[in-house]
Design a protein around this nucleic acid. Structure first.
Length: 760
DNA sequence: CACAGGTCTCTTTTT
DNA sequence: GAGACCTGTG
C-alpha cells in the first residue's frame, strides 16, 4: 500500500498520466491539490524526474507555499528546487534575468494600480484629455485588456485605423507605455506580456527555460488569460508535458481578462490531450452540493459535470432574510457565537463571504461589539496603504532612484516646502536634459528656473537619500527602515496626531517592520531590491495563516480555493449579488459569471452554510431596497431551512413605515465612538442631496414647490430603471422625494428633479 | 506653499 | 461614506 492507493481511480489516472498534454476538469473540492502534489511526488519518485525540471504555477503565493509544503511532506526532499510560483512571480524571475534583451534595465520596478493611475493622469494631461469625460480607469482597462490579449501599442494603432476613438486610445497606450519605460517600470500585465515577448524574440532564452521546465502544471487554469496561455504554450511546446487543472464552473476573473476558452478549447489546441474529470467531492455534504449543482445548472455553455459525495445529506442550508443589513450582521455574529458556545464550530472554522469589500464594514463593527476575533482579507491591500507606500517609496528611491513616481511621492513627505510648482520645474529640466527626476534633483542648483531658496530646500533631501544609500552595504534593512522613520519623523508625526486613524497607521508601519525582519530572517541573501520585489506581488490572501482561531471575512473572489466548515454568504440580494452592473448589462454572460461566483461561494462550505439577505441596505450613502437574490431562488426549497422572502412584500407592507427603517439605521453600531452627531442613515440622504441645491430644478424654480406630473400609484418610466409604480411622494424641503417600485430593479428612492420620471 | 473646507464621484470583483 | 479633487485664504 503506498500513498497513491489512497487516491480514487480518476485521481490516480491524472497522477500517472505524466507525459503529454493533460486536462483535469476538477470540480470544487474534488482533491485537485492532492492530485497536483501526488503527481509531483510520482514524477520525482517513480519517474526519476529531477525536481529541477518540474514547474507548478498557482494562482496565489499562498497556494504556492502550501503546495511546496505538501510536496515536502510527501517526498521529503527536493521540493525546494521545484519551480512553484504564480504567473506573475515566475515572470518577474525570468525578466530580472533577461529583460535587458528587450531594452529594459534588469532592475525595473513594478507599478501597482495606484501607480498606474498616477502615470495615466500625467499622460492625460500631456495629451490634453479631459479626465472628467474619459476616466483614467477606463483607459487603463483598455490598455490592460490589450495587454492580456498580447496586443502591443503598435498593433493596437494598426487596428485602430479609421476609428477616431480607438486612435485616441492607441495614442494613450503608446504614451503610457513610453512613460513606463522611461521610469523603468512594468505594470502587472506587462510582466506576462514582456515575458512572452522575450520568449518570442529570443529563441535562446526560450530554449533554456524549455529545457529546464520539462513538466509543467497549471492550477486554476480556468482563470488564465490569453497572454498566460501563450506563455505556458511556449514553455511547454518542446516537451509537451503540460497538465492543466481547472473547473470552468469556477471561472470568475473575466473582468481581469481570463479567457474561459482556454479551458473550453484546450482539446482543440492539444488534440492528443488526455481529459480526466474529477467529480467526487470530498469536502461538502450532499445538501450543500445539491444546492451548488442547482444553482450552476442555470448556466449554459459549460462542460457537463455533477458533483457527488459519499457523505450524508447533512444540515439544510440556512436561509435568513432581514429588514436591514445591521440585523443581518447581528444575526451572523450571534450565529457564530452560538456555534462556538455549543462547541460545534470554532471561530477559525467560520468564514463570512460577500460580494463587495464595502460590506465588511458593518460586519466588522458588529464583530467588535460582540468580541468575535476576526480578520478581514482584502479591501485596501496592505502594501497600497498610504503610510506603507510612502515608506516603500523611500526604500525604492534608495534602492534605485529611477522610479520618478516614488521620488515625487516622498519629496515632500514629510513637508519640506517643496510644492507642485517646484516639482514641475524640476521635471521640465529633467525632460530637457533627458535625465531622471532624481538626477535633476541632485543638481538642483544648476536648474535656472529654481531660486536659490528652493534649491536649498531640495539639497537636504538629496543628501539624506545619498547618505542612506552609501550606508546600505553595512546596515540591515531593519536598521535602514528605522533610520528612515527616525530622520523623517514619520511615526513621530503620526504619534502627535493622536487619532485612532493615526494609531492604526502606526500599527501598519510596525507590521511593515515585522515583514522586513521576517524577510531578512528567511532569506539567505537579503537585499533591498529583493524585498521590494517580493512585496510588489503579495496579495492580501497570502497573509492568511492557517490554524489561527479567528473568523475570516472576505470577498467571494478571495475565497476561491479555500474551504471552511461553517460558511455565511452575506448580502444575497439582487442588485448586490448578482451585482447591479451585471443585471443591467445587455450581456447575459455577465450574470453567468456571477452565478459561477455563487457556486464558488456555496462550495466553500464543508458542513454548514447560511445565506443571508437584507431588505434595506445603505450603499454609497444611498438607501437601497433589494429583492432576495435570484440565486437563492434557484435552490430547491427542500434543501433550505427558513423562509425565502417573496419578491414583493411591499405590496402587503408598503414602505409607509419609513420611520421604522430609519430607526434601524439610527441604532449606533457600537458605543465607543464619539460621533454622536452622525446623522442616521435615512437622513444623510436628505442632507447630501436635498439641501445641496446644485443641479438645476426641473420645475418651478427657486424655492417654490412645483407640481409633479404623476402621483402615488401612477406608473412611471425612468431612463435607466425602466417602468415602475410610484409608491410614495414625500416633500423633502425644496424637492420631492419619490419612492418607486420598479418592475426589474426593486424599490428606489429618488428626488423628482433628478429622476426625470415620465408618467406612462 | 500649506491647509481647511467644500464638492464630486464612486466600486464590483484583483495578480 | 470615503477618498480624490478643487478653491480660497493666510
Amino acid at each position: 500500500m503506498d500513498k497513491y492507493d489512497l487516491l480514487n481511480a480518476q485521481q490516480q489516472e491524472a497522477v500517472f498520466q505524466t507525459e503529454g498534454p493533460v486536462l483535469v476538469l476538477a470540480g470544487a473540492g474534488s482533491g485537485k491539490t492532492r492530485v497536483l502534489t501526488h503527481r509531483t511526488a510520482y514524477l520525482i519518485e517513480e519517474k526519476g524526474v529531477n525536481p529541477y525540471h518540474i514547474m507548478a504555477i498557482t494562482f496565489t503565493n499562498k497556494a504556492a507555499a502550501e503546495m511546496r509544503e505538501r510536496i515536502d511532506d510527501l517526498v521529503g526532499f527536493g521540493s525546494e528546487s521545484i519551480w512553484v510560483s504564480t504567473f506573475h512571480s515566475s515572470c518577474v524571475r525570468i525578466l530580472r534575468r533577461y529583460i535587458d534583451r528587450l531594452g529594459y534595465d534588469n532592475r525595473f520596478t513594478i507599478y501597482d494600480a495606484d501607480d498606474q493611475k498616477t502615470v495615466m493622469k500625467e499622460v492625460c494631461k500631456r495629451l490634453q484629455i479631459d479626465t472628467k469625460k474619459t476616466k483614467e480607469r477606463a483607459l487603463l482597462n483598455v490598455i490592460s485588456s490589450a495587454k492580456n490579449e498580447l496586443i502591443s501599442p503598435e498593433e493596437f494603432t494598426l487596428r485602430a485605423a479609421g476609428d477616431y476613438a480607438k486612435q485616441k486610445q492607441a495614442q494613450v497606450y503608446r504614451e503610457y507605455q513610453q512613460t513606463l519605460k522611461k521610469n523603468n517600470a512594468l505594470d502587472f500585465d506587462d510582466l506576462i506580456m514582456k515575458c512572452v515577448e522575450l520568449f518570442k524574440n529570443d529563441p535562446e532564452v526560450l530554449d533554456s527555460y524549455q529545457e529546464r521546465l520539462r513538466y509543467i502544471m497549471v492550477d486554476e487554469y480556468q482563470d488564465t488569460n490569453t497572454a498566460q496561455f501563450e506563455l505556458v504554450r511556449l514553455l511547454a511546446s518542446k516537451y509537451r508535458n503540460l497538465c492543466v487543472v481547472g473547473d470552468d464552473d469556477q471561472s470568475i476573473y473575466k473582468f481581469r481578462g481570463a479567457n474561459i476558452h482556454n479551458i473550453l478549447n484546450f482539446e482543440q489546441y492539444f488534440p492528443d490531450a488526455k481529459v480526466i474529470k474529477l467529480e467526487e467531492n470530498y469536502r461538502s455534504t450532499q445538501n450543500i452540493l445539491d444546492a451548488a449543482n442547482a444553482v450552476i445548472r442555470n448556466n449554459v455553455g459549460r462542460k457537463a459535470k455533477a458533483l457527488w459525495t459519499q457523505q450524508d445529506a447533512g444540515d439544510k442550508i440556512e436561509c435568513k432574510d432581514f429588514d436591514t443589513a445591521y440585523d443581518e450582521a447581528e444575526y451572523i455574529a450571534h450565529s457564530i457565537n452560538s456555534f462556538v458556545r455549543k462547541g460545534v464550530f470554532s471561530y477559525g472554522d467560520s468564514a463570512v463571504l460577500y460580494r463587495t469589500n464595502a460590506q465588511s464594514r458593518l460586519l466588522e463593527e458588529r464583530f467588535v461589539r460582540e468580541n468575535i476575533p476576526y480578520k478581514i482579507v482584502g479591501g485596501v491591500n496592505f502594501y497600497a496603504r498610504k503610510e506603507i507606500k510612502d515608506l516603500l517609496s523611500y526604500l525604492k528611491t534608495i534602492d534605485n532612484a529611477q522610479d520618478d513616481l516614488a521620488v515625487k511621492r516622498i519629496i515632500n513627505v514629510p513637508k519640506r516646502g517643496i510644492g507642485a510648482t517646484t516639482i514641475t520645474k524640476v521635471q521640465d529640466y529633467a525632460d530637457e536634459n533627458g535625465m531622471s527626476f532624481y538626477a535633476a534633483l541632485k543638481q538642483a542648483e544648476d536648474i535656472p528656473k529654481l531660486s536659490k531658496a528652493t534649491a536649498a530646500k531640495i539639497r537636504p533631501f538629496v543628501t539624506f537619500i545619498q547618505t542612506l544609500r552609501s550606508k546600505l552595504p553595512y546596515i540591515s534593512l531593519e536598521q535602514l527602515m528605522d533610520e528612515i522613520i527616525e530622520d523623517t519623523g514619520y511615526v513621530a508625526e503620526l504619534d502627535a496626531e493622536g487619532t485612532d486613524e493615526a494609531r492604526a497607521r502606526i500599527e501598519n508601519i510596525d507590521e511593515l517592520i515585522s515583514k522586513i525582519v521576517a524577510y531578512e530572517e528567511n532569506e539567505e541573501h537579503p537585499m533591498l531590491s529583493g524585498f521590494l520585489e517580493e512585496v510588489a506581488l503579495i496579495a492580501d490572501i497570502d497573509n492568511l495563516e492557517e490554524g489561527s482561531d479567528y473568523v475570516v471575512l472576505m470577498t467571494l473572489h478571495s475565497a476561491k480555493g479555500l474551504e471552511f466548515p461553517n460558511v455565511y454568504l452575506a448580502g444575497m440580494e439582487d442588485g448586490l449579488f448578482p451585482s447591479y452592473m451585471t443585471i443591467t448589462s445587455d450581456d447575459p454572460t455577465e450574470v453567468e459569471e456571477e452565478r459561477r461566483l455563487c457556486y464558488v461561494g456555496i462550495t466553500r462550505a464543508r458542513e454548514h452554510l447560511t445565506l443571508t439577505s437584507a431588505r434595506v441596505r445603505m450603499t454609497r450613502g444611498e438607501t437601497q431596497y433589494h429583492k432576495v437574490s435570484r440565486f437563492v431562488k434557484e435552490i430547491p426549497k427542500s434543501l433550505l431551512q427558513g423562509q425565502v422572502r417573496e419578491d414583493r412584500p411591499r405590496k402587503e407592507e408598503p414602505i409607509k413605515d419609513l420611520g421604522a427603517v430609519k430607526q434601524n439605521f439610527a441604532r449606533k453600531p457600537y458605543g465607543s465612538t464619539a460621533g454622536t452627531s452622525k446623522p442616521a442613515g435615512g437622513m444623510s440622504y436628505f442632507q447630501s442631496y436635498g439641501l445641496g441645491q446644485k443641479k438645476p430644478q426641473q420645475f418651478g424654480g427657486g424655492t417654490n414647490l412645483g407640481k409633479l406630473a404623476y402621483a402615488e400609484g401612477d406608473r412611471v418610466r425612468h431612463g435607466k430603471f425602466g417602468e415602475g409604480i410610484v409608491r410614495q411622494i414625500v416633500s423633502g424641503g425644496r424637492d420631492y422625494e419619490v419612492t418607486v417600485d420598479f418592475d426589474d430593479f426593486g424599490t428606489k428612492k429618488m428626488f423628482a428633479s433628478f429622476a426625470k420620471l415620465q408618467k406612462v
